[in-house]
């Protein structure tokens, strides 16, 4: 899955909503494999500072990324959950503060990203989803996982 969707590509879909610092972020349900409580994370040296390490997920080694660092926002990740996503045939973990919700999204409520979202660059997001009370920033997995240096 390449994840270069725009706001128009999101149909009616369930959205997994989670929090990263002040950002309410979301992923379409088809991008999420699993949500886990973080097991022990083994730190691994990597040239990408946002890689926090690897975890053992039922015998598979899964690289885990700190969303604070990928998004370039200050502060310390509370690390309440890991959102397991599939990206380019690999399973990867996103370390987030915590999972907030799972909502049913409607296609017409997605809109393009106008600019930076709470301190994170607009390029990390595909779209905004308008919930009653607030906006959910839909993550661009490619930008978040590969970062600039790998693109």
């Amino acid at each position: 899955m390449d994840d270069t969707r725009t706001s128009a590509d999101y149909g009616d879909t369930e959205i997994i909503v989670f929090r990263v610092s002040d950002i309410v972020a979301g992923l379409a349900i088809d991008q999420v494999r699993e949500i886990l409580k973080p097991p022990e994370i083994t730190p691994v040296y990597s040239r990408y500072d946002y890689v926090v390490g690897v975890i053992n997920l039922r015998g598979n080694i899964v690289t885990t990324v700190d969303l604070y660092k990928s998004l370039g926002i200050a502060g310390e990740n509370r690390g309440g959950h890991i959102v397991l996503v599939e990206f380019q045939d690999e399973h990867l973990g996103l370390l987030v503060d915590k999972i907030e919700d799972s909502i049913t999204g409607r296609a017409e409520n997605f809109s393009p990203v106008p600019g930076d979202v709470n301190g994170a660059n607009a390029r990390f997001f595909n779209a905004l989803y308008k919930r009653e009370q607030d906006l959910i920033a839909m993550l661009n997995l490619k930008a978040v996982l590969l970062g600039e240096r790998m693109l």
């Binding site: 083994t42 691994v44 990597s46 040239r47 053992n56 080694i61 899964v62």
Partner: peptide
């Protein structure tokens, strides 16, 4: 095997899982 982030790292040949489940 390790993931895409380690494709160009020469430091590691891979990973393994120990008896106690740690990596």
């Amino acid at each position: 095997p390790l993931g895409v982030h380690f494709k160009n790292s020469s430091e590691f040949a891979g990973a393994t899982i120990l008896g106690d489940g740690r990596v």
